[in-house]
Design a binder for these strands. Sequence first.
DNA 1: GCCCACCCTGTCCACCGGTCCAATAGGCTT
DNA 2: AAGCCTATTGGACCGGTGGACAGGGTGGGC
Lengths: 205, 205
Amino acid sequence: MTKHVFITSKGQLQARWKSAFPDAVVRTEPGGDRPDVLWWANVPLSSAELSSAIAALPGVPVVVLSPEPVQEDAMHAIALGARGYCHSHATPGMLQQVAVAVTHGGLWLGPELMSRVMGAASERLLGEHPSDVDPGLDLLTPRERAVALEVARGATNKEAARRLDITERTVKAHLGAAFEKLGVRDRLQLVLALKYVPVDVDHAA
Amino acid sequence: MTKHVFITSKGQLQARWKSAFPDAVVRTEPGGDRPDVLWWANVPLSSAELSSAIAALPGVPVVVLSPEPVQEDAMHAIALGARGYCHSHATPGMLQQVAVAVTHGGLWLGPELMSRVMGAASERLLGEHPSDVDPGLDLLTPRERAVALEVARGATNKEAARRLDITERTVKAHLGAAFEKLGVRDRLQLVLALKYVPVDVDHAA
DNA sequence: GCCCACCCTGTCCACCGGTCCAATAGGCTT
DNA sequence: AAGCCTATTGGACCGGTGGACAGGGTGGGC
């Protein structure tokens, strides 16, 4: 059975935690035994205390709970080795999700933070060389490509039609072909699929 | 029950995957239905295919499997939105661990990569942050931001509603508010406003 | 207390977007 | 000549989308 230990200076929200994990233990200091998940609700966030707590329990995932999530706090926590960062008012179900994720080796951050962290890490590690990502634009015919680029700039079908001097119907035809070739279902996903291409391409009428 | 779909160009290692997930399905293309986890064993790694596969299944965690893990490949996968990166020769037990972590909202990377990614993200986000924050996201309320991010991943209103556990109507409300605040007219331009800074609106007129 | 911002939901409706059914015409390969 | 790809357009269909009215609930500030 999974053992959960909550560290908190003030005794807040214990009811909610107990609801999520009936066997949870609430403490004011990370002493003694070895939990399966250590929930760090000790506000304000002290880097020193948190890092020593994490260091003292190698292999034990530590999740930081914050009453009002701040991305910068989250980044500090991650930098110190925390495996999760979550709203302390999260629902019991959410806490259970987090627990499952981190006890299985995962990092849990919440959608917004997660995408930000992943984006930042890629930027940092991939750096200047965006590498040769094949854009998929090569798969398209010239006309399909032109339409796709118009759409990727945020144009409606009607606007693209006017700019390319064709009917809206034709725009739809080319777009449909592009969807098919790129394996996407709508214009927004087409833009996402084209996102990773340097947009220096000029679109001449 | 969790449904696992493995995408692979050559049919390798299926026995091991079947061992981990007896109900797994192996395919050569990410077509049709909606799995709970999409395992991407399609080597060599094609950014376009992977990104469109990820975009086509918003909300479905995608885990990339590699016969010989390369950190750079892993970073590309992460940058494209994969929720995990793992050795394709991993034991069934390990794969199950990964599956559990990602299906519960986690990111699974393996200890070494994980610490590297987290370190890089911290450096990038804490170190020097020359206003690299999206200027638009700050204008939005937390809920509007969450909806906007779902939409920015290619989700429809309905899908965003399901993921955020609200009605489609509420998604529209938040989305409409986001449009208003960011001065855009539709979801596609919202995505452009969030991703790109240099938005030349010359053809909005 | 009242006001306000935020969050959530509802109905109605016009429009847009994507896909189905076609057709015509030019260029290219076989 | 036959066959295929590309480009172009038409009509019709229907679901997704966005705006325009609504409202109700909560929590914080004055």
